[in-house]
Design a protein around this nucleic acid. Structure first.
Length: 877
DNA sequence: CATCTGGTTATTTTT
DNA sequence: TAACCAGATG
């Protein structure tokens, strides 16, 4: 989604030239107020109300604006009332923003839209209304991943499956994957189900579902999957919703998974006649080539240790729709027209950008958006290609990069903004220097009057953040980390919630189990095991079992006493619930249970933060009527947006940056293996590479005015230093829009040996067979750095190429006139080291000298292997 | 039952 | 390297 903040910034439609022509402008002037300022495509997307519409909205093209204006249009045209519009997003944040913007647009006219929300919250909502039809009660609990895993662990134990070889987490992942694909336990292809736990995968899935019903619980996947089942098994219920929703709007359609797609398909069919068989719709969906195709055919597990994963992943497979010629012109493809669903789809409008699909590993199906015209015949496809966010160079770089992907619908982003600054690419010796360089550039921006809120560092993997945090702390540069564990995923929040859950529903075994011994009460595994046995034998919840066991002498006196106290406490809390406000009750519970005290006594650094979080939790309860209401929503809507308003640099992963934008964007770590991620490449092959490339595209398009890319030559991965080569994505950037700059990492080379390793250390081992342009640029860069550093910027492309292939030859380098300290080192006097000296190097550790070439030593390091380093960076020991 | 220790394993994470 | 977890120990 686009931010409101962008509107004042770049451009609002007024700037747009008469691209739409005079007629378009005349129309615009004539229309209702809210249509003013939309460009012709946006306007078409807003005004095309009937039939299916796909809006391909590139980055920064005003997607959210279109969505909200469209809703306003529907309402103001009297085509539907607020409760007749289904509008789904992926995140609560997006939903909130749409509500906010709608409110602004319509004044207070619309009091909220009851059916504007995330897939999950709307699914959950429908499910609660009809819970009995899917064997749940309307107050069912939504399980989080922790609970899921704990439950699965128990099932694995019951089945006597070694949870070392078949971890519960993995099973949770599998089940999640199946649910994402819309597969109930009975529908999982047997081959796939058999792969886990010696053929017991399917059975485990089934018994997991069974347990969920007993616990009156659903996991995230169920919120959709059970909803689908509800609709399929109860056509009258489905019809009710089909009738209700006159318009459907979907945000981020490229991120929908199969289950979400099926759910939308069901709701978007025109209501069938009462009694008409649903089979008209459903089998078509389930046997679509896509769904069938990926289930059996593509399991080509090569790795012994995780064959399961292979099956869930969507490996690249032949897809006729990806043949580019056919893709863009649905009319030509009679075949597809024929296989179209019988009943017409109604007014569904999906907005998305195939180039921003970065959640494939989470079950998102890019195919959903690529196949839209097939799935919704007669669909109107509208492209939004005018970008109001980034300057010309940035946009050109991003577009050029993403053009390397094949599986895309194809869009060309345009801007009317100035070219602006070129995208920069900077190489550094290692990740530390990279952090240092970025830190300095940020300080420079700050000095130039930039607001730090307009500066972001976007990394591929969160381990990269640490280096920046360290650096910023020493610089005293304020920063904030965005993302990370969500509020309600924190242990203390879950614990607190577990207490409340047990009060609210005594049968919530998972919650009970979570807090029985938190804080420590002397009720360990043995006791819990006993309770389990008891509960299973008598088919009763753990809490009741506990009540019974306390009356016997099966437990040791100490445990028995502790358990009795706990039960009495809960009884008391439950009684209090009748007469106490829920927020107050929560405080009492946290206090009397000793939970608060536990953290107060805790000496660790984050204890204080946890206590704050608990307070925050209690505070957030105020928004809800009562405990029940709070618990029903908490797992779905609690996100900590601790929006500290102080000026600070934002630090986050590329994934969590989607939908955001900043004036200045720093993109470190563009190295093969890290970005694109080796693992993604290994596991998903070409599809994985394309997703990584989309991620790169997302990263670049976050920037309004400056995008700065970095790569380091050395990076520590799992504790060992590894030499890396620049990312292929750097090669894919158009040279006209990119500038290679020198690293500003070292604040001068003045401080001789204290500085640490330099880029000269290891030059030879640096990709001796790498000849791509990216590499060459890196080389050029390397040379330039060196020149620049020492005051003389000589030694360009040719030089670097030859020095690269010929090795780091001093003869070649000699003639380059380089002055200053650096050169003194580089070409310096005879080494003070001798062969076989034992030396120590800051980064590589201990080793011994095996070769001396001037001041360059080849050293066999004990851990890091043989490296070439400059002598000033090692010391004799 | 709590604490220690060694072995294992390392992305991304809307709900 | 570091963080987490499962089993062994006290």
């Amino acid at each position: 989604m686009t931010e409101p903040s962008k509107l004042p910034h770049h451009g609002v439609p007024e700037h747009q030239p008469a691209a739409g022509g005079i007629a378009a402008r005349a129309r615009a002037a004539a229309g209702p107020q809210y249509l003013n300022g939309l460009n012709p495509e946006q306007r078409e997307a807003v005004e095309t109300l009937d039939g299916p519409v796909l809006v391909l909205a590139g980055a920064g093209t005003g997607k959210t604006r279109v969505l909200t204006t469209r809703i306003a249009h529907i309402l103001s045209q009297g085509r539907a009332r607020p409760h007749e519009i289904l509008s789904v997003t992926f995140t609560n944040k997006a939903a909130r923003e749409m509500k906010l913007r709608l409110g602004q647009m319509l004044g207070q006219a619309v009091e909220g839209m009851p059916w504007l929300g995330t897939f999950h919250s709307i699914g959950g909502r429908i499910l609660r209304i009809h819970a009995e039809l899917v064997q749940l009660k309307s107050n069912f609990t939504v399980l989080d991943v922790d609970d899921q895993v704990r439950l699965l662990k128990q099932l694995l134990q019951a089945e006597n499956i070694d949870d070392k070889r078949w971890p519960a987490r993995m099973l949770a992942g599998l089940i999640d994957g199946w649910k994402n694909r819309g597969l109930a336990a009975s529908q999982v292809p047997s081959g796939e189900a058999a792969m886990f736990g010696n053929g017991k995968g399917g059975k485990l899935y089934a018994s997991y579902q069974e347990r969920l019903k007993i616990l009156n619980a659903a996991d995230f996947g169920d919120l959709l999957l059970e909803n689908i089942r509800l609709f399929r098994e109860n056509p009258d219920v489905l019809r009710q919703y089909q009738n209700r929703f006159k318009f459907i709007l979907v945000d981020e359609y490229q991120d929908t998974n199969v289950a979400q797609y099926l759910w939308l398909r069901l709701l978007s069919q025109a209501p069938s006649r009462p009694g008409a068989p649903l089979s008209a719709i459903i089998p078509g969906d389930l046997t679509s080539p896509r769904l069938r195709g990926e289930v059996g055919a593509q399991s080509a597990p090569g790795e012994g240790d995780s064959p399961q994963t292979e099956l869930v992943e969507t490996a690249p497979h032949p897809n006729p729709l990806r043949a580019s010629s056919a893709r863009l012109d649905p009319v030509k493809d009679g075949e597809r027209e024929k296989s179209a669903p019988a009943s017409p789809a109604k007014n569904i409008c999906c907005v998305g950008d195939d180039d921003q699909s970065i959640y494939g590993w989470r079950g998102a199906e890019v195919d959903n958006i690529l196949r839209f015209e097939h799935d919704f015949p007669g669909a109107k496809v509208i492209r939004l290609e005018r970008n109001y966010r980034s300057t010309g160079h940035i946009l050109a770089a991003a577009s050029h990069l993403i053009a390397h992907n094949e599986g895309r619908l194809g869009k060309t982003l345009r801007t009317e903004d100035v070219d602006g600054e070129k995208v920069t690419v900077t190489g550094s010796w290692d990740s530390e220097e990279e952090a240092r360089a970025i830190g300095e550039e940020i300080e420079e921006l700050q000095r130039a009057g930039e607001n730090l809120n307009e500066v972001a560092i976007l990394v591929r993997a969160s381990f990269q953040m640490r280096e920046f945090e360290d650096r910023f702390v020493t610089l005293g540069l304020p920063y904030r980390v965005i993302g990370g564990p969500r509020f309600y995923e924190r242990a203390e929040i879950r614990d607190a919630l577990a207490y409340l859950r047990v009060i609210n529903s005594p049968a919530d075994d998972l919650a009970f189990e979570r807090i029985v011994n938190v804080p420590k009460r002397g009720l360990g595994d043995a006791t819990v095991q006993l309770l389990h046995d008891h509960a299973r034998k008598r088919r009763m919840p753990l809490f009741e079992a506990a009540r019974a066991v306390v009356e016997t002498d099966e437990l040791k006196p100490k445990a028995r006493g502790a358990l009795r106290d706990l039960i009495l406490q809960f009884d008391r809390w439950r009684a209090q619930r009748e007469v106490t406000a829920h927020t107050e009750l929560a405080e009492i519970v946290l206090d009397e249970s000793g939970y608060t005290e536990m953290w107060q006594k805790d000496r660790s650094a984050d204890a204080a933060g946890r206590l704050d979080n608990l307070k925050e939790l209690v505070r957030s309860m105020e928004e809800f009527e009562n405990l029940q209401g709070f618990l029903e929503h908490i797992s779905l809507v609690m996100d900590r947006d601790g929006e500290a308003s102080d000026e600070a640099v934002s630090l986050m992963t590329l994934h969590s940056a989607k939908g955001l934008e900043f004036d200045n964007v720093f993109l470190p770590g563009w190295e093969e293996g890290l970005f694109p991620s080796q693992r993604t490449l290994d596991e998903q092959g070409r599809a994985g590479l394309e997703e990584e490339r989309r991620l790169a595209h997302v990263g670049l398009t976050r920037a309004r005015r400056r995008a700065k890319l970095y790569f380091a030559t050395n990076r520590r991965i799992h504790g060992t230093w590894t030499t890396t080569i620049p990312s292929r994505f750097l090669d894919e950037l158009p040279s006209a829009n990119v500038e290679i700059t020198e690293s500003k990492g070292g604040s001068g080379w003045g401080g001789a040996g204290g500085y640490g390793p330099s880029r000269f250390d290891n030059v030879e081992s640096f990709g001796s067979s790498y000849t791509t342009p990216g590499w060459q640029r890196a080389q050029a860069n390397r040379n330039r750095n060196q020149g620049g550093r020492s005051g003389q910027a000589r030694g360009g492309f040719e030089e670097s190429q030859s020095s690269f292939s010929g090795g780091f030859s001093r003869n070649k380098r000699g003639p380059i006139v380089i002055e200053g300290e650096l050169v003194a080192k580089s070409t310096g006097t005879v080494s003070e080291f001798s062969l076989a000296d034992r030396v120590f190097h800051q980064k590589f550790g201990y080793g011994h000298v095996v070769k001396i070439d001037g001041n360059k030593l080849t050293i066999a390091f004990e851990k890091a292997g043989e490296k070439k380093v400059v002598d000033s960076f090692v010391e004799r020991v």
